[in-house]
Design a protein around this nucleic acid. Structure first.
Lengths: 261, 261
DNA sequence: ATAGATTAGTTTATGGCGTAAGGAGTGGCA
DNA sequence: TGCCACTCCTTACGCCATAAACTAATCTAT
């Protein structure tokens, strides 16, 4: 998890909203880089090699500079991560048709956001503790609230729903992202991993099925279809998203029904 | 996020399930430490100062040893974290009465698990990508499934529900934990933080209310009660838990109704 | 034209991290 | 007694973010 530096809040805001300010000719050598170029390079590093591989060195190298060169443009790494975060949120689409009601709109919003998170899994490692307050973060909230307005719920209730939905999508995408990350960072596939663990579990923790009958029962449920090549831990995460989304939508519908009736 | 070392899976299992093996008298100096002592010390460090402060040096210091001394007992840091994880999961209670049905049982399970996560927030930073396969992790699953059996849903469906519930509680607790962590690690309270941001936001991103009317509308909703001293970001997280849990339970109830009818 | 100020980018250094390697001392057993 | 497995230490390596000091470029004012 990465936190924003609270060093100079003014500089931070100015960077996020990119208040031009670079008009006047200034002394000194011409800048060879731009904030945007740095942010793009950093996003590329994170997309390709994961958040763990995002170092100032790595970003600098990709731009043919040293790590320290970046500090001319960006106050520190935490701030860079915030910029990456808001920048990449700009990819999210905005207008969801409300003709068919909030339910299908919310479902496709969730699918889009999930896909987005899986495209940029490192985003899930940016702390949500304090909002970044960038333009695209606001836009994302705007889109979601616009959809949920269709439920007719009052603002206080809706605020809880917004949190629940946001959190659900993050969590579900995070589960998948974690599984993939583990596979990449350890170099061991889920199958290999389980293949070595399974017999050891029997050896050291024999009689599991008797000790944990419920866990055993549910563990054996629902074997994959013969043509399903999805790694099994990832399939679990997919299932959680599908079932969870349905449950969530049903639950919101129940709230709506209650508030009307 | 921290991953388990997949170095020696056998050793890892043997540690998790603590297969005694230490009976025979062995040559060499008497061990001054035990795995349990190390795990307890590590948990104490993480509880007090957070996962970020959990270093082999810090744990060693707490035990009056160097960092390297730990490597006699524990193969590496990732393995130690797994041991901490399963150890501390042992705190979770087991039997939830099913007299009143699954709903109240699930609600109090969620509350207990949430409280547990807030007692040991670092647990939320242990990757869920691959299960640790320790005794208490199994026990936790066992407890949850036992409660959910009361819904009468079939195993495949229940697996999705288990995932959704687990993820929800993790996510909701994580949000609160993140907020607290940010306050501690930056040394800036939510109030101070917002006090400096708020005017800057107006300065650099003027006209927010016109640009993001929905976000503005929901942002103004539901001011705190006069006697409420909870930091406001944390209050948002509390609300998300309350609303989210209700929505989740309603959603599960809808699934149950569908499967019966 | 030149001096001074300002800036971009470098090198170097500090103090953290996990952990590999090797050495010192301990104590049970042949 | 000597061996050797064992615990624990010191040292060292290569990472990390970033502070500080420096070089070199390029503007403005003289």
């Amino acid at each position: 998890m990465v936190f924003a530096g609270q060093g100079d809040a003014r500089r931070s805001m100015s960077l996020l909203w990119r208040s031009a300010g670079g008009g006047a000719a200034r002394p000194g050598p011409k800048p060879g880089l731009t904030v945007d170029a740095i942010v793009r390079a950093a996003v590329a590093v994170a997309d390709e090699h994961g958040m763990a591989a995002l170092s100032m060195r790595a970003v600098g190298e990709r731009l043919g500079r040293t790590a320290m060169a970046l500090y001319t443009y960006v106050p520190n790494k935490a701030e860079l991560v915030d910029l990456m975060y808001d920048d990449v949120l700009g990819e999210l689409p905005g207008g969801y048709p409300s003709d068919a009601g909030w339910r299908p709109a919310l479902a496709s919003w969730a699918a889009d956001v999930r896909a987005f998170y899986l495209r940029h899994p490192w985003v899930l490692q940016v702390s949500q503790a304090r909002p970044v307050l960038g333009p695209h973060e606001f836009a994302m909230l705007e889109t979601l609230v616009r959809i949920l307005r269709g439920t007719g719920l009052d603002a206080a209730e809706l605020r809880g729903v917004v949190g629940a939905v946001t959190q659900f999508v993050r969590g579900a995408a995070g589960a998948v992202a974690d599984v993939r990350r583990a596979a990449r960072e350890t170099g061991v596939s889920d199958e290999e991993w389980w293949f070595t663990r399974s017999p050891l579990l029997e050896e050291f923790a024999g009689g599991l099925d008797e000790r944990y009958p419920m866990a055993a029962w549910i563990g054996e449920a629902d074997p994959p279809a013969a043509d399903d090549r999805t790694p099994y831990l990832e399939r679990d995460a997919e299932r959680t998203f599908a079932v969870g989304l349905r449950v969530l939508l049903d639950g919101i519908a129940a709230s709506v029904a209650r508030s009307v009736g």
